[in-house]
Design a binder for these strands. Sequence first.
DNA 1: TGCAGTACTTACCTGAGGGATAGTGTAGGG
DNA 2: CCCTACACTATCCCTCAGGTAAGTACTGCA
Lengths: 124, 124
Amino acid sequence: MQPNVYEANCPSRQLLDRIGDTWSVLVVVTLAEGIHRYTELAKRIEGVSPKMLTQTLRGLERDGLITRTVHPVVPPRVDYALTELGHSLYALVEGLEKWAETHIEDVQAARAAYDATVQAYSAK
Amino acid sequence: MQPNVYEANCPSRQLLDRIGDTWSVLVVVTLAEGIHRYTELAKRIEGVSPKMLTQTLRGLERDGLITRTVHPVVPPRVDYALTELGHSLYALVEGLEKWAETHIEDVQAARAAYDATVQAYSAK
DNA sequence: TGCAGTACTTACCTGAGGGATAGTGTAGGG
DNA sequence: CCCTACACTATCCCTCAGGTAAGTACTGCA
């Protein structure tokens, strides 16, 4: 009954997997700006292969986070847009970004300190 | 200057990778309950191998999200605890869980609908 | 003498995710 | 007449993340 993150089929775990997928997050972030076409997304999200882009888009569509609109013209034209659900998820991603901006200095300081002590040990 | 999620070395991107790592999140969630020892974490987080647990713990420690306290006794005893920074990150994870609980029905409905239409096409 | 308990580390190996590349269908334009 | 644009789809291939298993160091207890 209660959410159990330790089980793979738990809702919270599934969301975790989605948030964990870099391409999915990148698509959501890009679509938060507005409607985009397939090639626009491909150009915007540098480094994504057509295979992964399609795969990601399908997954997002399946989960009701984005809509896919096919215009029956030649050459084909397909528009992708965030749904209301997608926008609410984007709000969370924004929260992550805010946290990152606020605490990144702490994290980097911690990393530097940690690396320094490790270096000291291995140098000995 | 401004955060660019599309670049791999951007702060927001690094946080994304951390949140994306299932074991990291699971450790943070478990430690949010209180201090735990190594074997306690191993038992609690079902399915994690000692290798991955150590690796995850090291990464979290490096980023200043958890503390690692070694007690020089025999047999050895090592305590792990969330730092203040770790707790603030946990707040975000809690937000994700809340979202999941609230919207999981919408997602599952969307999935069912999507699968139904796909099935209809492939059956044709 | 040797085994148990703790917290790892190291070496080796495999499967699956994802990159690269090529193919598909349509029609307007040069 | 064929090339291009668009949005995929299919295929092969290869890397590498992560699992398994075994090793390490230390000491008290039977």
